[in-house]
């Protein structure tokens, strides 16, 4: 299992501090980052994934064996290329350096696992929102990541599509991938989180097991957040 830890992580943009000295070791198999809008959840994930460069602090990846850690990210709004669902997956695999025939095999396997095999040759951008998000998960899965980042993966979906997406995330996790996700959906955080990280105004206010966090939050902000109050 790969280990990801961040140390005194800071991120400024336009003189505003978005992430304020956060230190976490992501040890749980499934971590859920919770917090109000603008808390810095998405920015934290992007920093960890390497899409943003931290202003200060460090991000440390450690793998068990001497191999590079593979990571993937699925965004709130899936971005699909104007080609078939299958071709979207093989494109990602080709970028990862996987040969054509193996890429095709892995892509088909991933589509099957996400329940999208029947849509393999349909154009990706005309699929429904839920199907596109499952396709984005299949694309990430085909890369066989050690760690998968999910930024509010079900934010734009109806309850049925949300359940389907959660099922795919669950399958990916059970196949051995560590999942780090953000969400606004407290029910989802309960269902999907082993560990909860509560962030507000760029600071890590609380970290606890999901069970513990929802039963007895330590910080007043977290308690208010769970109650649906808006002290901000």
């Amino acid at each position: 299992m790969a280990h990801l830890s961040v140390e005194n992580l800071c991120y400024d943009i336009g003189g505003r501090r978005i992430i304020d000295s956060i230190s976490i070791e992501f040890s749980a198999r499934r971590s859920v980052v919770l917090g109000p809008n603008g808390a810095g959840k998405s920015v934290l994930l992007r920093l960890c994934h390497g899409l943003l460069v931290p202003t200060a602090g460090s991000i440390c990846w450690r793998a068990d064996a001497n191999v590079a850690v593979r990571q993937a990210m699925v965004f709130q709004r899936p971005v699909m290329l104007r080609r078939s669902a299958l071709a979207n997956l093989t494109h990602a695999l080709s970028l990862a350096g996987v040969g054509a025939s193996e890429a095709r095999e892995r892509a088909i396997t991933a589509l099957r696992s996400a329940g999208l095999e029947a849509l393999a040759h349909r154009s990706a951008r005309v699929l429904s929102g839920g199907e596109q998000q499952r396709l984005a998960l299949a694309r990430a899965w085909a890369l066989r990541p050690d760690i998968l980042f999910l930024d509010e993966p079900t934010a734009n979906l109806d309850p049925v599509a949300t359940r389907e997406v959660e099922a795919v995330i669950d399958a990916i996790h059970r196949a051995g991938t560590q999942v780090i996700m953000t969400t606004h959906n407290l029910g989802q955080a309960r269902r999907m989180g082993d560990d909860i990280l509560f962030i507000a105004r760029g600071r890590l206010l609380e970290r606890a097991s999901a069970d513990h966090f929802f039963r007895a939050p330590k910080s007043a902000e977290a308690a208010a957040f769970i109650e649906g109050e808006l002290p901000w």
Partner: peptide
């Protein structure tokens, strides 16, 4: 603008 993050995430 639309694809940048996704493509960078995939290592393009």
């Amino acid at each position: 603008e639309e694809y940048r993050e996704q493509l960078q995430s995939l290592g393009s």
